[in-house]
Design a protein around this nucleic acid. Sequence first.
DNA 1: TTGAAAGCGCTAACAT
DNA 2: ATGTTAGCGCTTTCAA
Lengths: 336, 336
Amino acid sequence: MTIKDIAEKSGVSVSTVSRVLNDHPDVSEANRARVMAVVRELHYVPNSSARDLVRPQPDAIGLVVRGVGNPFYTAVIRAIEQAVRAAGYTLVLHQIHTEDNEVPAAASLARAKKLRGLILLGGCFDYTPERIAALDVPFVCCSFTNSFGTLERTAYSSVSIDDQAEARRAVAHLIERGHRRIAILLDSTCDHSISQLRYRGYCQALEEAGIPLDRELVEETSDFDMAAAYSGTARLLKRRPDLTGLFAISDSMAVAAMKALHDGGKRVPEDCSVIAIDGIDISAYMIPTLTTLIQPQEELGEKAVRLLLDLIEGTGENRQLRLQAALREGGSVRAV
Amino acid sequence: MTIKDIAEKSGVSVSTVSRVLNDHPDVSEANRARVMAVVRELHYVPNSSARDLVRPQPDAIGLVVRGVGNPFYTAVIRAIEQAVRAAGYTLVLHQIHTEDNEVPAAASLARAKKLRGLILLGGCFDYTPERIAALDVPFVCCSFTNSFGTLERTAYSSVSIDDQAEARRAVAHLIERGHRRIAILLDSTCDHSISQLRYRGYCQALEEAGIPLDRELVEETSDFDMAAAYSGTARLLKRRPDLTGLFAISDSMAVAAMKALHDGGKRVPEDCSVIAIDGIDISAYMIPTLTTLIQPQEELGEKAVRLLLDLIEGTGENRQLRLQAALREGGSVRAV
DNA sequence: TTGAAAGCGCTAACAT
DNA sequence: ATGTTAGCGCTTTCAA
């Protein structure tokens, strides 16, 4: 069923139908009513492809999220959606898997949907000029930045916490409370991503405290999921039952770790303290409440949108914004 | 930039470019290479609207998810996506908010994207013939069914657990272990949705055991989120500190409830047992592990796709499938 | 206030 | 193997 069918059935021209459908003023009430009646009767819905083809797209902004089920992103996405809508833009959301690369995906999206700009949530850290050449609209990296790439600072924008510094802070929090045998639970020490950055912060904190790095206390799970975190922690515990502190690079890994510690006979925090980074909702409901560095999820989203709009409207330049995480002292850490 | 630009720049016609882009065989290697070079150089990406307009859409199936951040859905969505892809169809995902109605959304989506069928995840329970008239493609309700509507059984398909029966089973599980003062934590007793059905099961279990319904033990939070569940449980506890069992209608509410019980001085399960329905990943990592009726999330998704494909291909009829939930005995329930 | 007609970018006959 | 061209369904001039 097309606009032509509606036109015929209501005895007017396609242009009149189009006018009615698009709320143009120059249509007689009689025709408007007649057309609407037919539209409703036939449950006609315009073909959006045809529409998009002719209409200069209403200003749309794309959001490419890498890593579908990550609970940390939900609040960020919500904030981005609101900010985008408040600014009078439309948000086009596109999810990709962790294995996929976000740059080609974003480029396709941008061209296909005639986007004005892009926000990348949870991407890689190793952009090079060649890789981003495909992007011909402004973009902002949200929750990560280009730590391992070769881009000039004038070539990209980002909003993120300082992952390394915050990780250092988390580990220092444990050290200050007397911990010396502190393990780290991470995805990988060399994934060119968040995991690697937070690992650096861990090493830095140890070094500053004069504690030698002990590879046995580094547990790489090769995955961000909870099952991997659980079994990783169990292995760690078997290897080094003398640990007194654990830094997990994400809240969800920390949750699984706490369970593994419990099942391994360690009480949290009496026998082992746990600290993490993220601040997902559910971590506040753990028993004990997880001590974690809360990323400002809303602010991350809002600032990313603000930065992008400035870029689009030509009133801003590429910038890298650093936000602070906030320490929530739950009950999962105590002094030894 | 259009296909025409590419054609000019590479000195061939638009059809040749189109052929190259669509991997048609009848193109000389020389031309193919030339065109691809230009495409890459200019980072050309075809306009998908124009493409979709012309091409008989690859068979696409729409998935309308109502209630964005619900963790229960993530595994179901993953299963649906896989099953759809395995069957050679494409999945078009559309998220809507809990306040929005999924039927018009689904109808628009179906017509706009020329969908072959629809899966509705987490919709309402009160469809009427008028309301679904707009849907002119087969659809399957996933994880819910039309308990409060007036549809004929031949007019719709669904795959879900028997919410009322499973709720009854959960509550009976507590009753069998000697509990008498059993509270229920729910969204609302009359939302025409999952909450209401599970409330019925609660009432039924009590009745069968000869336990009179005590309204003070019914806590309506008016929301599914954890903050509401936490404060609801706190109120409940103040009102009826003598309760020994709690049935939460979702895992995430149960998690918040366990925290509230803990903060209110009740140990789980020593002082109060907790049981729920859903089986989200994280509930296995609670301390104690949450006892819950696990919905077969993968199966829910796979069966929904199977049903829909049979409908689309004309080899099946509208059916309502009931799946079993599986009891996971965690540590949150004990006998009194 | 209306209708006719020119595209939007692309694919797929149909020619060559 | 390649080019020409007729639409796909819609919006939007431009005329009437």
